[in-house]
Write a protein that binds this DNA or RNA. Sequence first.
DNA 1: ATATTTCCTTCCATTCTACTCGGGAATGCT
DNA 2: AGCATTCCCGAGTAGAATGGAAGGAAATAT
Lengths: 139, 139
Amino acid sequence: MKISTKGRYGLTIMIELAKQYGQGPIPLRQIAAENDLSEAYLEQLVSPLRNSGLVKSVRGAYGGYMLSKPPHLISAADVIRVLEGPIQPVEGIENEAPPQRQLWMGIRDAVKNVLDTTSLEDLASYKEQDSDDGYMFYI
Amino acid sequence: MKISTKGRYGLTIMIELAKQYGQGPIPLRQIAAENDLSEAYLEQLVSPLRNSGLVKSVRGAYGGYMLSKPPHLISAADVIRVLEGPIQPVEGIENEAPPQRQLWMGIRDAVKNVLDTTSLEDLASYKEQDSDDGYMFYI
DNA sequence: ATATTTCCTTCCATTCTACTCGGGAATGCT
DNA sequence: AGCATTCCCGAGTAGAATGGAAGGAAATAT
């Protein structure tokens, strides 16, 4: 029940690109440095993002990556789907017995709903709202 | 973003035990046969379920496993937590930047809500409701 | 005594994860 | 033209997780 670093770092890339949307291509090196991540690894993640059409690239000096659409038109679900595959809590849900099937579909829909209703703009323009203090991380 | 066979098969065990709750100990062999699963593998899964107190065991001939509480008092979340660990879409959520943190917590709460509100009784007494035909499995 | 069943440990093949590395191709700057 | 920068692409790799298999010991009913 995990989203791997593929989805996590991929989302980080997309949020950085969203923050600087409209300011020309952003090199991966910068994103890697700011988030303390491996540039070579990010390279592998951005490749499917480009193939799927979510980002555009410019090669050469002063090149980099940019979103191919405004941040409010790209959802977290779009990014996760490209990097982690279809949103589904189990493989082969159609072969499961009806009770389990109903459960997995419920989970899938709940997750999908959160990811679908969160845009890159939401994530990039995030402002601290009310305090998280006391909120439990593990449940 | 997956629940492995540990959680899935473990839930299958628990649902079978729920169906036959109050009818004495059920051997794993029977559950394995009915669901076409490896008995040796189920053995490994039921061990943590016993250690956590969700099931009780009776050794020897005519022995087996049984729920330690009525099915309506055990949630799917109880089972998944024992076999898959804490319900969390990413590791180390507290180290994530606030925007991502908010997203992961939203997903976690959504999943937790579905699992918490589904009891073994719900799963064991499942009756076909309205048709699933045409419902998409992959989204 | 024997069959059954849980209990416990170890081992194994395969796949996934999270990278690293090396090199090639395009582009801008001087 | 030459050089630095940056994307692009494939291969390799150590470690962990997955999904089991195997063997034997201990308990219990008949």
